[in-house]
């Protein structure tokens, strides 16, 4: 196994790049190719850790809530299952006719 292959084996075995063993670090100091490989890995991992978490679509919570209400997981103040609200596109519930006074 060449020194570069040993370096790459050490790199594969040490995902936490800052813990790379001294012999491997020494090789990277002397070998431009391996030094670049290490630097690229450090750049990739460093950027990956800083990537912003994307926002879910705004309607996701409404969908979750509707399902929880339908299952009775969400309860009202009296401890009763909260009535499920109709989703978009659902037919409107006809209200009872008002009685005249």
């Amino acid at each position: 196994m060449t020194d570069c292959q040993k370096f790459e084996a050490a790199l594969a075995d040490t995902p936490e790049l800052e813990r790379l063993a001294p012999p491997a670090r020494e090789h990277a100091r002397q070998c431009i190719r391996c030094a670049r490989l290490l630097a690229d890995f450090q750049a990739i991992v460093g950027q990956a850790r800083g990537l912003l978490a994307p926002e879910p679509p705004p309607e996701l919570w409404a969908d979750i809530r509707r399902q929880l209400e339908a299952e009775g997981v969400i309860r009202d103040a009296a401890g009763e299952p909260a009535p499920a609200k109709p989703g978009p596109g659902a037919p409107l519930v006809q209200s009872a006719p008002r009685t005249s006074r």
Binding site: A53, P54, E55, P56, I64, E69, I74, R75, G79, P81
Partner: peptide, 21 residues
């Protein structure tokens, strides 16, 4: 755990980005 809708939403808003990500 008592079934409060507001509580579910509170937890959802707090953790939604990491789960979705």
């Amino acid at each position: 755990q008592r079934g409060g809708a507001e509580a579910f939403e509170w937890l959802y808003q707090r953790h939604k980005r990491r789960v979705y990500s």
